[in-house]
Design a protein around this nucleic acid. Sequence first.
DNA 1: CCTTTAGTTCGGAAATTTCAGAACCAAAGT
DNA 2: ACTTTGGTTCTGAAATTTCCGAACTAAAGG
Lengths: 162, 162
Amino acid sequence: MKLEVQKKNLIEELGVHLEGDNLAPLAARILSTLILSGKKGVTFDELVCQLQAGKSTVSTHLDHLQNSNRVKYFTKPGDRKRYFVIDPNLILNVMDEMIDKWEKEKKLHLKIKEYKKQCNCEAEETGDFQFDLDFQEDFLTFLEETSTAVKKFKAKLLVRNN
Amino acid sequence: MKLEVQKKNLIEELGVHLEGDNLAPLAARILSTLILSGKKGVTFDELVCQLQAGKSTVSTHLDHLQNSNRVKYFTKPGDRKRYFVIDPNLILNVMDEMIDKWEKEKKLHLKIKEYKKQCNCEAEETGDFQFDLDFQEDFLTFLEETSTAVKKFKAKLLVRNN
DNA sequence: CCTTTAGTTCGGAAATTTCAGAACCAAAGT
DNA sequence: ACTTTGGTTCTGAAATTTCCGAACTAAAGG
């Protein structure tokens, strides 16, 4: 199959997939395009044209993508255009986000565990425990272990890249 | 602090958090309520009252939550009401979902890698490679490792529970 | 200065999601 | 047979998200 056709199909497929992470359709298409366009970068106008989108839309979404450390740009001397590329640390940033989210989740579930314990204490005399603390326990271990797995891999990457 | 107040606060806090996983606000509140109400279960009417929501809304969202294996219900003999509780396998199901998602992602990125390789080949003579395959390589390893970490933990849980 | 380029910002239109009310249904009680 | 209970389904309203166009700005070119 011709490379251009392949690219268009992949942009769409990856785009749909990326929408899963709370990205607006067009934001997902932008990111997808950048992922599939490589180091040479894509300009603002190219994005507007290729995605058939409004300038304002592209501008806003590019802002978002840059603020969330997914996208960067570089310039060429004597050329006012910006060449957008995916942030070279994208994987690391994604991992950091995951770790962060799990960290928050852990704190929340510790609070919940506390609450459940208190509830079970109150029901002591009746012997009618409301909560199975195993669930909470398991979930916390789950978050812990998954977190460390990602952290380890992150460390490995960092060592290798230096 | 009084347990009831604690519970209400936790339901809201956990609810907001759960909205992060593509759940509608009310769906998140339902799940949150069930998580914080334990084994005794919560009836349809209690959900409608406590969450101040329409019956149709609760009905629809409960459907969703059951179809996505997050929620189950049990009944009591001689009592037509349904007592909703979180699915006892919720953690396992969540893990399966994660593994599934990563599996799909892996397939997609293998396709992308293929595409990138072809692109780089075409640009062979110019020496002007469009893609740094490291990114793709790293990402695939990342998915692989995170997946196995979760799978291992899942296996551990399964062994313990039997 | 005036124009062109490369965008940004603002206001609102269009699409989508989320929710509620009314009508409905099926099983159980009377 | 009628009523109550415990929901479900359908239709549309309200809220939110997503996007676009028009007007604007700032830097560079002529």
